[in-house]
Write a protein that binds this DNA or RNA. Structure first.
Length: 273
DNA sequence: TCTGCATGAAAAA
DNA sequence: TTTTCCTGCAGAG
């Protein structure tokens, strides 16, 4: 679930449900007990996301300038928020953090990071991130500078959060397919015009992901006719479709491990030049 | 019921 | 390059 669109969607949801509310915070599991205790009784001033990182700015009740605890969350591979209205269910299992306020609650389980940080740590963290397609002021040229200087395969560079922040394994594979790009092509061989087109495409795809809460990359013309709700498999071109026919040319989709992650591509549509 | 895998990334080696 | 974190789910049995 968690690529950049998921975190931006969560930031919006948390802002909408808890922004301006005094929250009750607890860590039933105990692993974030001190942090939850610091947050408990403060007001959520702002929730925001950068790449795959989520931040909550808290402050004293009624003080819109914040200055209170700063919460940093990274979901990693398994992390998940479950949200609801009214009375929250009895805490079960490993519940890292429960927030409640304004008639809503949200539970966080299995995150890689759930910690209180200071402004310096946030600045350092953000300094390591490349431009985020979901931020309006992000500069794709910054990412291109990195691509342009590297012999590393473009498929590896796209997963590097210091090149582009927020891309994960699904968007990576799908973006390469949509631009008919050989995953092993060196970053430096990607022309500027192609990168501009890929960036624009990413912005569109990820914004749609924020709205819908899922990743859909298959164009209308490549979808099964007369079908409304796409299954997960039908929503993508190549991701996890190993051995299945390419939606465009019918060639079986291939898979290989690249920098520790499964990569999926069509050997014909994305053939080396 | 059991097993392996997964949309991530840091740390260890 | 491998291990670790530590959860949920699909598919096998």
């Amino acid at each position: 679930m968690p690529e950049g669109h998921t975190l931006h969607r969560l930031a919006r949801e948390h802002q909408r449900l808890f922004g301006g509310e005094v929250v009750h915070a607890a860590s039933p599991q105990g692993r974030f007990a001190a942090g939850a205790s610091a947050i408990d009784g403060t007001e959520l001033v702002r929730a925001e996301a950068y790449g795959k990182h989520l931040f909550h700015h808290y402050g004293a009740p009624g003080n819109p300038s914040g200055g209170g605890p700063l919460l940093h969350i990274h979901l990693g591979l398994y992390g998940k928020f479950t949200t609801g209205a009214g009375e929250p269910p009895e805490p079960r299992g490993a519940l890292r953090l429960r927030l409640a306020g304004g008639g809503h609650w949200t539970d966080l389980r299995g995150p890689t990071a759930c910690e209180l940080v200071d402004e310096d740590a946030v600045a350092a963290l953000l300094g390591r991130l490349g431009p985020d397609p979901l931020h309006a002021r992000s500069d794709p040229a910054r990412a291109f500078q990195k691509l342009h200087r590297s012999r590393t395969p473009v498929a590896a560079l796209l997963m590097d959060q210091s090149v582009v922040a927020g891309i994960g394994n699904v968007y990576r594979a799908e973006l390469l397919f949509r631009h008919r790009l050989d995953p092993m092509r060196p970053g430096r061989s990607v022309p500027a015009e192609l990168w501009d087109a890929m960036w624009a495409d990413l912005v569109t795809l990820m914004r749609a992901g924020v709205r819908s809460g899922r990743i859909v990359t298959v164009r209308e013309e490549d979808r099964p006719p007369g079908k409304r709700r796409l299954t997960r498999e039908e929503a993508v071109y190549v991701y996890r479709r190993t051995g299945l026919p390419c939606r465009v040319c019918g060639t079986p989709v291939r898979t290989a491990v690249l920098v520790g992650r499964n990569l999926f591509w069509c050997p014909r549509c994305q053939a080396p030049e």
